[in-house]
Design a protein around this nucleic acid. Structure first.
Lengths: 153, 153
DNA sequence: CTGACTGCAAAATCTTTGCAAAGAC
DNA sequence: GTCTTTGCAAAGATTTTGCAGTCAG
């Protein structure tokens, strides 16, 4: 999903968040946010770790910091995650319009969509159950068009 | 969701499945299926392991067998699973009508619902993307009515 | 300076695997 | 009897935690 907020604004958001929680602004935290913002897509913590190692080899970084920062960013709703059972989670930039996912079982690619009717119905259902909805996810799994086109298997 | 198929039929399904794949019918496999069928609900592999230990203390059972059997049952669509990120999966009996879930973040309870409109829209979206849908899940997370009623925190 | 942050390695979870003994057919 | 299954314990995979040194404010 295309980013609708400038990186400048996002970074300021983040800085303010840190400041107001007595947390520190560090190079590692900034780069983790930046990588996710700039590389539109869905990444595992390890992906993010590797990307930073590749793009910014001069920066010291441990995988634990990636995990800790992702938790921080997710709590602040700056990133959001999508779970893959045993195979962990993937993270994406979260300050876009809400959307759901189509996950290809063959190539692992993730497409996004937004459907007004589904959103409305979800709210309706939560209301019906007196359920205070804080989040909702929808994931359609199957085979994407590209993989269907491939001859093999 | 209430079971609409008798245990007898389910068991026969399973036996046939085993036979036609040259697999063996064992006490452990039967009990795992039975526990899931009889205790309507959502269970972790460990839950299932503990339930069987409690109800059938005379049967020898290792947790690995639970995992192996759940994989088998899920492949056969006899059970289905719902993922909780790092915290593993929960399994439920799968030969019921399709339905989605409302997961309470406080008490972990899972409620179920079915919405025709959402189902239709999902198919519509898959069609739009030329996506061959094999599965779809929807999970609404939040606070259930009971937990909202509790005074604390 | 002071308290938060970091990397590292160890620990914790959850799940899978290797293997010899046991069991189904 | 043969080939699959099982339990156990060890190994894997992913994520979290403890800690001493480092760094931001």
């Amino acid at each position: 999903m295309t980013n609708t907020i400038s990186y400048e604004k996002v970074l300021n958001n983040f800085k303010n968040l840190l400041k107001s929680n007595n947390l520190k602004y560090t190079k590692q935290r900034e780069l983790i946010l930046k990588i996710i913002y700039e590389n539109d897509g869905h990444f595992t913590p390890e992906d993010i770790y590797n990307l930073i190692k590749a793009y910014y080899p001069e920066v010291k970084l441990g995988i634990a910091t990636v995990y800790r920062t992702l938790t921080l960013l997710e709590d602040a709703h700056i990133v959001s995650s999508i779970s893959f059972g045993t195979q962990g989670k993937k993270y994406e930039f979260g300050l876009t319009e809400h959307h759901d996912h189509l996950v290809c079982l063959k190539c692992g690619n993730i497409a996004e969509f937004f459907d007004e009717i589904i959103e409305k119905q979800q709210e309706e259902i939560a209301r019906k159950f007196n359920f205070k909805m804080t989040n909702h996810i929808m994931k359609i799994t199957g085979i994407c068009q590209a993989c269907q086109a491939k001859k093999d298997a």
